[in-house]
């Protein structure tokens, strides 16, 4: 997770943090990244095209898609661990 959120990359740490948190990154990216988090089977080429047309490069999209996927999964994992802790207590 540290490698995704920190360090010099093609996107800013702030952009990756927002993608990770499923927060707004920008109007050209939000449809794509929102689908990565909640409905990945609905992602289309058009979602990538909108982001490219706004100036985002291939490596930037690679980084932000991964940050979004890892962020959503981390929230699910943390919620499940908290439930396990409560059930075990």
């Amino acid at each position: 997770m540290d490698r995704i959120l920190n360090g010099p990359r093609e996107t800013t740490a702030e952009q990756r943090a927002h993608a990770f948190e499923n927060a707004r990154v920008g109007p050209a990216l939000d449809p794509l990244l929102g689908k990565v988090a909640t409905s990945p089977t609905r992602i289309t080429d058009a979602d990538f095209e909108v982001a490219r047309a706004a100036g985002f490069g291939e490596d930037q999209l690679f980084e932000l898609v991964i940050a979004s996927a890892v962020g959503q999964t981390t929230r699910m994992y943390d919620a499940a661990l908290a439930a396990l802790e409560e059930a075990s207590g």
Binding site: V36, A37, P40, I43, A69, V70, Q72
Partner: peptide
């Protein structure tokens, strides 16, 4: 859950 998202994206 990570891999599934990346597979579709």
């Amino acid at each position: 859950n990570i891999t599934n998202r990346l597979a579709d994206a």
